[in-house]
């Protein structure tokens, strides 16, 4: 009854056959390989997962709780640097999150078929990276228990949030991007959920049935899905660019010397892509090295393609890095030049 997700005669099968460029195996066999890696885990996984869970719990509850109850003084910040590691982390994780969608959407727009094995990992990285970035906003706040005042909701104080504030733009942009990238992750996931639903038992089957949204793999469903994914791939690219330039505006619109620079928008986007593509490579390496059967799906050729992309982006990034200095230095403002020299030489200079 539900064999349709892997029906042999389907026109979109062309794509599926093509994406394993080198030695395509029968589709049923590949599905089994994927399912096997989902069903079997070794004790090593539980050791690693347990360790990471403990780290997250300690950091989230013990350390963050201590910071909330004591005050932000424990961060070591002081006048005039009111922003520190948390904002750095926010920018870093938003950057990481960007490349996942960028790689995936760009390759989808250009119909690069070799992308298929690793776009899922890239999109997942986007969603989790953004969630981490969203968390650091809360870590950063002095009174995090009042963080919901940033939400525009009708309240007894008769106040909306201040839409003039770059932080508000940031908050809205990150939320928009989180929603969009989650949907972008989920749409291509639906047929795979259906595949997993057809091949699992018990509570897994129930969970996959809910997540598959009743996908049966009919002609009409595939057409709609491809149309939706196409729209999302095109639409999410500008959203991605806007989010990181808005993060850059946090700094660029401020009156502080060095921050106040027009280069920050493109510079942040390029920096995000650089760190993010590096992160995609690392995630793929971990997936390939630790999960069963993944060596078949993720090939050295993929790393080669990512490496070439990384090379181009890193050269652009170096150019923007140079620009960041040269433009501000050229502006000739005394304090800016002092700070640039200070960055280069430190207090000894």
């Amino acid at each position: 009854m539900t064999v349709t997700a892997n029906a042999q005669s389907h026109p979109h099968e062309e794509d599926h056959r093509e994406h394993l460029m080198f030695d395509p195996r029968p589709r049923g066999e590949m599905n089994d390989m994927v399912m096997e890696s989902m069903h079997t885990t070794s004790w090593k996984f539980w050791v690693v997962a347990g360790f990471l869970t403990v780290v997250v719990l300690v950091c989230l509850f013990a350390v963050w709780g201590y910071m909330i109850s004591e005050g932000l003084g424990i961060t070591g910040l002081r006048r005039p640097n009111y922003w520190g590691a948390f904002i750095v982390n926010l920018v870093f994780w938003i950057g990481i999150s960007h490349a996942g969608t960028f790689v995936s959407a760009l390759l989808r727009v250009f119909k690069a078929e070799f992308r298929r094995p690793f776009t899922r990992a890239a999109e997942l990285m986007t969603t989790f990276g953004l969630a981490t970035a969203g968390l650091t906003i809360f870590l950063h706040l002095g009174r995090v228990w009042r963080a919901y005042w940033m939400f525009p909701y009708p309240n007894q104080r008769g106040l909306w949030p201040n839409f003039h504030s770059p932080l508000m733009w940031d908050f809205l942009a990150i939320n928009t991007y989180l929603l969009a990238s989650t949907m972008y992750l989920f749409l291509p996931l639906i047929p795979d959920m259906a595949m997993a639903r057809d091949r699992s038992e018990g509570w897994r089957k129930k969970a996959y049935r809910i997540l598959a949204l009743g996908f049966r793999g009919t002609e009409g469903e595939w057409t709609h899905l491809h149309k939706a994914m196409g729209i999302f791939a095109y639409a999410i690219l500008p959203v991605m660019f806007s989010v990181h330039t808005i993060v850059a505006w946090d700094f660029a619109v401020a009156t502080r010397p060095i921050w106040n620079s027009t280069i920050y928008g493109p510079y942040f986007v390029i920096g995000a892509l650089l760190s993010g593509i590096g992160a995609v490579g690392m995630v793929l390496a971990v997936v390939r090295g630790t999960m069963k059967n993944m060596k078949y799906f993720i090939r050295p050729e993929h790393f080669d393609a990512l490496g070439k992309l990384l090379l181009i982006i890193s050269m652009s990034w170096a150019y923007f890095f140079f620009n960041d200095y040269i433009i501000q230095w050229y502006g000739g403002d005394g304090i800016t030049r002092f700070l640039l020299a200070f960055h280069e030489e430190g207090p000894a200079g």
């Binding site: 004591e70 005050g71 932000l72 003084g73 910040l77 002081r78 006048r79 005039p80 009111y82 922003w83 950063h140 706040l141 002095g142 009174r143 995090v144 009042r146 963080a147 005042w149 940033m150 104080r157 106040l159 504030s165 770059p166 932080l167 946090d250 401020a254 009156t255 502080r256």
Partner: peptide, 23 residues
């Protein structure tokens, strides 16, 4: 109303603002 984003202090060219790092 303050939730402690500390953006205002970053943006004050006179560094006239102070933040309650602790109680």
């Amino acid at each position: 109303r303050c939730i402690g984003t500390r953006y205002c202090a970053n943006n004050c060219p006179y560094q006239a603002r102070t933040f309650n790092w602790y109680d």
